[in-house]
Design a protein around this nucleic acid. Structure first.
Lengths: 228, 228
DNA sequence: TCACCTGCTTGATAAATGTCAAGCCAGACC
DNA sequence: GGTCTGGCTTGACATTTATCAAGCAGGTGA
């Protein structure tokens, strides 16, 4: 049984509904790999030979042009990446690096395309995941084009607050310099943006964010279900 | 035969490979509608009841937040839109307006989801289209985050040049104020950006763009297959 | 314990981009 | 032909954001 090694992902939405046979075919030739922190595992422009799934740890997708670099997103356990390039059999548009020691499952892209064609439940799950990622990217772009950097930060702080169980104080999940890049600004500018949010009810101490006045912060951030 | 009204889209990649029966089911309850120019046909936040296809004319997808608005993309004949929201049965994240008199085919979202589940060829076409749009959006975001507005304009000029058959001079396909919004800048700034490109081999006269020095322009724009 | 990283912050300054106001100009319409 | 309109352009200025340089601080390892 090849699949026993991959039981941990069997319950993920992407794989939960497919037949046992399909899952076997899918995981044939798949393998698990451990990466140390800060390791570039995928470089943009390379062929997408494997669908990747974060089993544990943390992966950043980023992209470069000339001498500039930008963080696109950060992925945690149970996230998939390289799905679109896998399905279209094209090169990756983004690079990927580990931020922590990470365990990654790699499934041959060919298997994914084969099973997509033969297992309707898997096809549905793939399209669902793809549409979800697409919509997340549209939201991201709206965020970038419609808001200033301070507004983006304010909304990020609110979103994290909800993700971390509505605690008044919480820890930033990533380094500030990566957050800055994700939000489309420089680290210096992020520092100043945090200061600018003080009168709007946010206090920062190291990695700890404390929302001192939710009403003020929400009034300033104006979160929107169609962006955030 | 319901489908005769929709023969014009039968040959599109999205519908070409599906069975005749599936196409019949898909177009049941579908209809064609004519819109005048500058008509908002879809408002973000509304349910995505129909998959839309531009049969003729021109449609702009755009988005708003507070009192700001941004152009996301412009679609011409044979383009589909609202595909991701249709597949996930969610609200639209973008609004759509006609830029010219346009003829739009509308297919009930329910039909799309039903046929997706029953016709593997259609499923494959859907996932292909979705992945294509997703990747286009990633490119768009990289363009926005990694380049200045002048660099974005330079690359836009190069891309249009190729699209319009490598002619030395060509007409801008959209109004400058919409181009400005698409590129993430103000109309005033676009005007100045055109002026800034003069020493890099671009002359503008109204809607006409003339590339006077391709070498210089390319050297400045540094187009990249992973963005453009 | 201390030195030394590395990432963060702050200040000074520059560059990019946006805003406001005015004028220009081509096309639409009477 | 003349007027009007809307989009485009230009100038002056404000704001936002980036850059450069320096200093700070918390964690790591000798």
């Amino acid at each position: 049984m090849t699949s026993t090694r991959f039981e941990s992902i069997r319950e993920l939405p992407l794989f939960a509904e497919m037949t046992e046979e399909s899952f076997d075919i899918l995981t044939r030739g798949a393998y698990v790999q451990n990466f140390p922190p800060n390791m570039v595992m995928i470089t943009e422009g390379e062929a997408a030979d494997f669908l990747h799934i974060v089993q544990s740890g943390c992966v950043e997708l980023f992209s470069s042009w000339t001498n500039r670099e930008t963080s696109v997103t950060t992925l945690y356990a149970n996230s998939t990446f390289i799905l679109a390039a896998t399905m279209k059999d094209r090169v990756n548009l983004m690079s990927a690096r580990t931020l922590q020691k990470s365990r990654i499952i790699m499934i041959p892209s060919e298997n994914v395309r084969d099973v997509f064609a033969s297992d309707p439940a898997f096809a549905l799950a793939i399209v669902d995941e793809l549409a979800r990622c697409y919509r997340a990217t549209i939201r991201n772009m709206k965020n970038l084009k419609l808001r200033t950097s301070i507004e983006r930060l304010a909304n990020y702080i609110l979103k994290q607050h909800h993700r971390q169980g509505d605690a008044v104080a919480y820890q930033l999940p990533i380094e500030k310099r990566r957050l800055a890049s994700y939000l489309g600004m420089t680290p210096e500018n992020l520092s100043r943006a945090f200061n600018n949010l003080k009168p709007h009810g946010v206090v920062v101490d190291g990695q700890t964010i404390t929302i001192t006045d939710m009403t003020k912060l929400t009034a300033f951030a104006k979160p929107d279900v169609l962006i955030d």
